[in-house]
Design a protein around this nucleic acid. Structure first.
Lengths: 219, 219, 219, 219
DNA sequence: TATGAATGAGTCTTCATTCAT
DNA sequence: GATGAATGAAGACTCATTCAT
């Protein structure tokens, strides 16, 4: 429903031009919207075509099937997530500071755009059948663990962090404490009778998350 | 599809008897199976009727609609989760030990039965529209925070835990580090080219989770 | 389009009753019509539902798929063809007379109803994919060769027929000379600039066919 | 799908040259392939373009429509069939021998290439709507009846054949006994639980067909 | 001349829900 | 209560044909 981080779909008044790349991108953007809002099963091809101002047949022309389109959307979402992480340049700053930035960045990325979470949840509901088809997804993630390893090593060397931490498990936990809050925000709000969606609630959680992770990493 | 922790659907040889409660329970059990495996949109009323050995009309008789059935399933799943937590009697043991048990219990509950996770993810995809209808859900969760508050207080008093921790945020984080691992197990396995579903991988994660939380709570 | 031999579809003013057998039969009759007129690919499920005065979903309820329906139609058409052949009681009459009757009956059956030909042609276009699924089709045809064998044997014994004829090949040839005329009646009419569809033309062909077969069987 | 008698589609390395006739021929050859394999309704314009290594627009440029293309394919198929018949020079040899050759030639032509049968069957399913548009089809067939008339006359004069046979009916019967076997080969194989597609089965049928026709023509 | 993106009217099929029996 | 036939509104996907480039 809300993907403000994505550049707006180029509308071009009717979209009747023969613009291969443009059409494909417009479709993918509309699909991200639709799938994030309603999941794969709940997402409608018709609605995607309408949002993208594109003929329904074009979706099949460009992506082959609803499944093919979903995979394209997933890959694109991962790509955006990982490439924006790359811009942090964490190796240039002190370990503690780097860790704070990483945790905050992770948290903030979910504040800005929850569509990634929605896609992942739905994909896991289906056992990652789409993602497994991807040729590129695994290699997209190798830098991620490298970064984590380096930060932990540097922090361990200077005595800021424990030295017995597994980078992958740690990364998963860092993601978890932010991700879970947002992925389950509606049910959590309901069972605790709060509104976790407010700006204030976000700030509280953000503080807690940074504090918790840093505290956990202390030697 | 796999809910071994759930008592098997009572089969009752053809189910032609007029056992009002039994029928309703059989339907709910079959629905839990179906919705956990395929989500709300992907779940089929026909399949539920078949699994429950019950006429389709019975579903509408007992639960009104597919949505009504889904809510019943959700409430039941929460009920099971919370009531089994109650059996831990954490107030009888030392704070550190109590915390370890709680974390392990949370993790293990997901190992035994992932259907709860599936239901929650799907429900969040839909903005918790079903759960919001529930009259009972919030009150089911008040003991939960009470327990957490007490453990943290006792641990704070004796110097085992930090004293500045918010019980709700802490509980969410404890849930998060276990939940996220299982809710995202398929995509995580894919992007990291591991099999997080193995018994060994579970054991590794369990160890990490307990260790991380305890470490984070230290003063 | 034209299946006058079939009993007319029971119309029952709207067909809204819960009549399992009746509905299934109405669907099959409408489908025979449609598929005979337009082939499998050209046949439309929508049109069949409309002709049968039945909801489209009923077709799937009763026959599972368009393919399943086509097979049901095929089996039914074969059944009608073979069972009406059975009524001839050829073993009660002299061999020559029996052969004449069989040839005439075969020819006349195509005059009365060309839908069988249409179905078979179309099915052969698809390599008999549907018919191969049938459990009953082969056993429906064992009496057919038995009959032919007996007639040829009786005719051979009394000196009316040659004794070196293979019953199956002979049956195929008898079918061929009538079938081909009707199966290719439109193209033949076009290339020879005649109207083979007229009553007169039928009579001429019928005479020729009987004469040719009898002549070929002479010792 | 299988038209070994047809010269292979000229490939011409990507087919980007402006070879008007070559393009048209390549399209027609690919269309023959496609329509013979799947019928008119089942045939796909996209697939034809792909097989012919030609742009889809070219098909419309050269043949106007799918129907126009189908007619071109039909005319071409008839042309090939009739012109190869012309090479037999049956008027040079004894009537009995000529008849044997004609029957064998007819049978063998179907063994070599079944696409003609497929096209005719499908065309008859549609009432020969395409063929009726043809200007040339009728005149292509006048030599055919002339030949038959002459052979029968010569055979009648020398006492080899009956003298009361109609050439057109006889020609149709000769075509029928071979054609039907191949046009219905899949359903016949299924109902009789044989494989009529084997080389051996072909030989048996060929023998029967020649024998049957010769026997029928005896005075 | 040649390309392939774009269109719109279908196609088969599914499914929650109702209701006659 | 219980059954399952019946309904209608989609849903994913296809395809002959057109047309901007």
């Amino acid at each position: 429903m809300t993907t403000p981080a994505v550049p707006p779909v180029p509308q071009a008044a009717g979209r009747r031009t023969r613009d291969r790349a443009g059409t494909a991108i417009a479709i993918r953007a509309a699909a991200l919207d639709e799938f994030a809002a309603r999941g794969f099963s709940g997402g409608r091809v018709d609605r995607i075509a309408e949002k993208a101002q594109v003929n329904k047949g074009m979706i099949y022309h460009h992506y082959g099937s609803k499944d093919g389109l979903y995979l394209a959307v997933l890959e694109y979402a991962y790509e955006r997530a990982r490439s924006s992480e790359q811009t942090l340049r964490l190796d240039k700053i002190a370990p503690r500071e780097a860790m704070v930035r990483l945790v905050e960045f992770t948290f903030d990325s979910f504040v800005k755009d929850r569509s990634f979470i929605k896609l992942l949840n739905d994909e896991n509901l289906h056992g990652a059948v789409h993602l497994k088809q991807s040729q590129r997804i695994a290699e997209m993630h190798s830098p991620l663990l490298d970064n984590m390893r380096k930060i932990l090593a540097r922090g361990g060397a200077e005595g800021t962090f424990r030295t017995d931490l597994d980078p992958m498990q740690t990364w998963i936990s860092i993601a978890a404490v932010s991700y879970f809050y947002f992925s389950n925000i509606y049910t959590l709000s309901t069972i605790f009778r709060r509104d976790f969606n407010s700006r204030k609630a976000h700030a509280v959680r953000r503080q807690h998350v940074v504090d918790l992770i840093l505290s956990a990493l202390k030697p």
